[in-house]
Amino acid sequence: MRKSFYQFLMTQRNPNSHDEVAEFAANAFFDQSFPKLEEDYDKISKYLEENGGYLPTMTIFDEAFQRYQEQASSL
């Protein structure tokens, strides 16, 4: 079974990293409303546009989602 985007994103958390995706993951961890079971780019993107004040630019989400897709295609 494919991981949700949130499950993937949690693998990117690293408190010692200044990588933008790692910081996004750390902030998403504390977002109680994050769509944790979602896999769809458009639905997650819409959520972040409306509720992701902790995300300085959507480019970071795009990069994270690209990593998510690459990992899913390598399985």
Rank of each mutant, 00 (worst) to 15 (best):
Y68P: 03
S74R: 14
E38R: 09
F24T: 00
Q69D: 05
F8G: 09
Y6T: 12
N51L: 07
K46Y: 02
H18A: 11
H18I: 10
F8D: 06
F24P: 01
P56D: 09
Y6R: 13
Y54P: 12
Q7D: 07
A22K: 04
N27V: 08
E63V: 11
R13Y: 01
A26C: 08
Q32E: 12
N14W: 01
S45E: 15
Q71C: 02
K3Y: 13
F24D: 00
Y68V: 05
S73K: 06
E70Y: 10
I60K: 06
F29N: 12
F61W: 09
N51Q: 15
T59D: 12
F5Y: 04
M10G: 03
F65E: 01
Y68K: 11
D42Y: 06
N14L: 04
K36R: 14
M58S: 10
P56E: 09
D40A: 07
E23A: 10
L9F: 04
S4F: 09
A26G: 03
A28D: 12
A72N: 04
D40R: 03
A25C: 03
S33G: 12
N14P: 05
I60N: 00
Q71G: 06
T11A: 10
N51V: 04
E38D: 11
F61Y: 11
V21S: 02
A28E: 07
Y54F: 14
F8T: 11
K43A: 00
E70A: 14
I60A: 01
N27T: 13
M1S: 13
L75E: 07
S45T: 08
L75P: 02
Q12E: 11
Y47T: 09
S4V: 05
T11R: 03
E20D: 13
K43I: 01
R13N: 02
D62K: 14
I44V: 11
D62T: 03
Q69T: 04
E49K: 14
P35K: 00
L75V: 06
F34G: 12
E50Q: 15
P56C: 07
D42K: 07
Y54G: 14
F29C: 10
A28P: 03
A64E: 00
Y6A: 09
F24L: 04
G53H: 01
P35E: 01
K3T: 04
A72D: 06
N16D: 13
D40T: 07
N14D: 15
S17N: 06
Q12G: 03
V21M: 01
A26S: 07
A25R: 09
E20T: 12
F8V: 08
F61I: 05
D31G: 11
F5W: 02
K36D: 02
H18T: 15
Y68T: 07
D62V: 00
D42H: 09
M58P: 04
